[in-house]
Design a protein around this nucleic acid. Structure first.
Lengths: 329, 329
DNA sequence: GAGAACTTTCGAAGCGCTTCAACACCGAGA
DNA sequence: TCTCGGTGTTGAAGCGCTTCGAAAGTTCTC
């Protein structure tokens, strides 16, 4: 193993000079700097992460607690993680993936000085982990938006605004009875933050626009077909659909298209999902993109800024935007 | 911050005694052990990961290079990662998620002493990373099965055997003309290890059984419908289908079921995908499970064993098994 | 009853790095 | 010429832990 001492010797300088060349925390003459950098390259030196973290009291690692269960929104989770990992590297950080989604895992990482900060995904309304995080002296950022006091900074997509946007679009297309085909029942039941916010925005917008809107839970499997069929049978007047359910989307879109053809109706579907998912569903005119990778990147930026400047807690919501036909019409 | 010195003082023993209590590397009397453990609990001590890795020259972290791109098989990737992370914790290891999928990332992690070992997913036939790994003095395991010399241990699902199993099943059901509806063209084109192996097993089994088998690339979007329709039109004699394409599966299954009803034919579909994906597709009688989480766990077990015992490189392929109706019939 | 053979505990030397205080050197101002 | 403020560099003191060699105490064995 090549150590900083080897580099120092090769460059004919002291150990501390090498350290200062690497960190840039003190002025070093160009000449010495060149010599040291050449020695580093020649020897293929890279500093020992553990030694560094011991001496500097920081690890350059961020802990990420991601919901690794298969289920709804695998694509979204994956893209958020990608965004986090990629952006973190740009700030010089690495990502430690925490195994379980409980408070213990967070404490273990923090108290063992394995990470400088924590990023937590899939937060529920009054998640016990929020208290845990407050008790830690490591900064943290939530990806999601819990209810109540917001002691911890949050980053998320603005699902409420997305609800409004979808309704506006459907109303502009002339639809007066709208349905939100949403997350599976269990997700709605446990009041997952985003499902709640989306429904709230959707319903408020319907009311503001003077149109009728209903919210329907929907399994994210092929059974979605039944759900949509039921909705359409129960109220044949519904002509505008807003779908937020990755797994169900293809089934739902197909079913609605078929029915529309059968009935000779002008039915419209606005989907809420990542752009590439939307593109894989044929005949989907309108969609609102969930900028999953951007969410991950934004959360990472925020935590890096906190680490760098010690800034205050904040909430950041990424605004929704229509893609597809709507943008060109 | 609570250090080992605080614990030692509280327990009235020396620092090394505390260390030995934690590591178990030397005999400590029950009495002292109790006292030390109580002190650890009381003070809420957890050792500093960096200090530990500096002194012990091992990090208890495994680097994982996962393909984080969205696309085919998100579920499979996610489940493998879950398997890795979960199993790693059982062995006392944490997972560092590498950002990019190139050799640089591997070297950075290894040479910076950030990890004890490396786990690499999504390996292609002659992947440059294999040479990189050989050059490192960190052990590594591939999740996948590259061609050629196998200097690095590999763990994967036995796709070739899965091809045989599917054919056996379809033949047993009386089908004499079979089609493999496989990965998207780009995956087949770059000769991704698993796609090749699956086709090889499928075709060999067809020949051995004296039946006709053809292999078809298939987009993993709704366009899969067209592909299957074409296949069925081109050769109406095909009655047995083997589908390995997560995204396409629901579309393919539906299309085949419809056609079967229209034509009054007994068509059969065997799917190759994780169990829960299979369950979400209605009317899917037979499926061969891709034990994605088990693959991740097995790879982790292997690397932990190498770390612990310095065992030799090996290849481990998890055998396929039928689930669904077939298991009960 | 003395030495061998354990068992249990401890002291101290690092592991490779960061960082502070201090030093050497330089040209500038008095 | 002497001092002063910079600038560039260094020595040494840790950071918190592991681990080796040895000491101290205990039990056997002949």
């Amino acid at each position: 193993m090549v150590t900083i001492a080897d580099v120092a010797q090769a460059a004919g300088v002291s150990i501390s000079t090498v350290s200062y060349v690497m960190s840039g925390k003190r002025a070093i003459s160009q000449e010495t700097r060149d010599r040291v950098e050449k020695a580093i390259d020649n020897l293929g030196f890279s500093p020992h992460a553990g030694a560094r973290s011991l001496a500097s009291r920081s690890t350059n690692v961020i802990g990420l607690q991601a919901p690794l269960r298969t289920g709804v929104d695998v694509h979204v989770v994956m893209q958020i993680v990608t965004g986090v990992v990629t952006q973190a590297r740009k700030h010089g950080y690495d990502i430690l993936l925490l195994a379980s989604d409980d408070s213990k895992a967070l404490q273990r990482a923090a108290k063992g000085s394995m990470v400088d900060a924590l990023l937590v995904m899939d937060v529920e309304s009054d998640d016990p982990r929020i208290d845990t995080l407050s008790g830690l002296d490591h900064p943290s950022v939530l990806i999601g938006l819990p209810q109540g006091r917001r002691a911890i900074p949050c980053v998320d997509f603005d699902f409420e605004a997305a609800g409004w946007l979808a309704v506006d679009r459907l109303v502009a297309l002339g639809h007066r009875r709208l349905a939100l085909i949403g997350s599976p029942l269990e997700v709605m039941a446990r009041h997952t933050s985003y499902a709640d916010r989306l429904a709230r925005g959707f319903l408020a917008a319907c009311e503001a626009n003077g149109v009728v809107g209903t919210v329907h839970a929907c399994p994210s499997t092929a059974e979605a077909v039944t759900t949509v069929a039921d909705v359409m049978t129960d109220d044949p007047g519904i002509t505008g659909f807003f779908v937020h359910n990755e797994g169900a989307l293809p089934h739902v879109a197909t079913t609605i298209a078929q029915r529309g053809r059968q009935r000779g109706d002008e039915l419209a579907v606005v989907a809420l999902c990542p752009d590439d998912v939307a593109r894989s569903v044929p005949g989907l005119a309108d969609s609102i993109a969930v900028p999953a990778e951007a969410i991950g990147a934004a959360a990472t930026d925020m935590i890096c800024e906190i680490l760098a400047n010690g800034t205050k807690p904040a909430v950041r919501l990424l605004p929704p935007a229509l893609t597809g036909d709507a943008t060109t019409s």
